[in-house]
Write a protein that binds this DNA or RNA. Structure first.
Lengths: 233, 233
DNA sequence: TTTTTTAAGTGTATAAAATACATTTAAAAG
DNA sequence: CTTTTAAATGTATTTTATACACTTAAAAAA
């Protein structure tokens, strides 16, 4: 069956904006790739790839991400689609952007070597090719909204994390200080964290208690009309 | 210049979910088209078209919308992109969905005749082709969120409208009653409406005052940190 | 002309949520 | 045992959200 004859076909790419959080440096980072093909070879870009004939958009994004992280499953969501005529000087390419949230250690051995992948703070991004700067800005804006209403911050932290680390993450994303007592009051009131009986002792003498996000409890609450809300003051 | 050789090309479509509000019937309506080509000829769908070689995605959506409404400018925003392998049985098509908000009277003469376009209440939608049902559900969900935080409700109403009409619109979208006094208190407190000295007299003896949305004032306020918020209780 | 009918318009008291803010505690180092 | 450092904690105040019922305007009917 060969329908829709006469309609133009297009190159379609997926571009993945990969976010992680660096606990030590208290910075949100983005995985950037040194581009290996023309045009713009050697310039910085986000990770991308063309959508193949036999794969869905989501599958294409997963493939690109697996190449860099080795991970099969991760927090991945479609953001926006970019289709201006001359966004890529090499050819007319329509690009679907995806946001991925991962733990900073999750990089494949190939990532640094083969793909020249590097983590860069969102505060000090180099110039990016094409409209990747816009994609990143859009994705970041989206993440800032998402993290208020969905428990996505935990995707960027290890399984065990302290409330200090969680707050630092929010502060890094919003670039403004957050009231410690109010922040803890809000997140603990949601009743979706479990306090472990273990302390993080690297960064202070006293040590800070570890917590864990209980996804199952969150899901049960959600089914009963609960809404995650961590509006930062 | 012929780069990216060997990568597959795809048919790319735009599909427009066109919303309007029927004041008399107090119903949110969707513009549906009787499909004129195979596959699924004669079935209901949203308005769509293939993206041409020389037009951006936004331009393609605008073209589709102009065909039906004759309008050059309207509230139009990209929603989501759909790319499963078999979403269209006719061929592999990747589809970018757009939401449009228009006034119900804005239909081109061709719309009804040539395209068999019909307004249908979102409460009584027929079965739609392919994944158009999902597209509509996603767009509707998006609209419900948008209308809380952005002054998009006014796009669905005439220039002059009453507070009763505005509230009815919110109630139609949420399918639940809204407290009249609290609703009016909130919207008027924003100071973005101007009370006209004219009454709407069709629907009641007493008549309801007409108001007008002052976009300029909204924009000024927005620049000064104001956020539209009409969370319905 | 008075009365009835109908939908528009209005205010206040209470509850809940957001915010501002400073001291105490635990633990290691000196 | 004193000092140092970051973690942990509670309350009062302000702001926002909510619940709730009567009055008013105007035409239609008596």
């Amino acid at each position: 069956m060969k329908l829709y004859k006469g309609s133009h076909k297009h190159l379609v790419a997926v571009d993945c904006i990969i976010f992680a959080y660096d606990i030590a440096e208290k910075e949100i980072k983005l995985l950037l790739i040194k581009r290996s093909i023309e045009p713009a070879k050697g310039k910085w870009s986000v990770a991308g790839g063309f959508v193949q004939d036999d794969e869905s958009l989501d599958a294409a994004a997963s493939r690109v991400l697996k190449r860099l992280t080795g991970l099969d499953h991760m927090h991945l969501s479609q953001s926006s689609t970019y289709g201006s005529l001359n966004r890529d000087p090499g050819a007319r390419v329509i690009s679907v952007s995806y946001s991925a949230l991962i733990k900073i250690q999750d990089l494949s051995p190939d990532a640094a070597g083969l793909y020249h992948a590097h983590w860069r703070s969102i505060l000090k991004l180099p110039e990016l090719i094409f409209d990747h700067g816009t994609m990143v800005a859009d994705a970041l804006e989206n993440l800032r909204e998402q993290i208020k209403r969905k428990p996505v911050g935990f995707e960027l932290l290890p399984e065990k994390f302290t409330l200090v680390q969680l707050q630092d993450l929010y502060e890094a994303l919003y670039q403004r200080p957050v009231d410690k007592r109010n922040f803890r009051k809000k997140i603990l009131a949601m009743n979706i964290l479990e306090k472990l009986d273990e302390k993080e002792k690297e960064t202070s003498r006293k040590g800070a208690w570890y917590y864990r996000f209980i996804r199952e409890r969150y899901q049960v609450l959600t089914r009963n009309g609960f809404y995650f809300n961590l509006d930062v003051n």
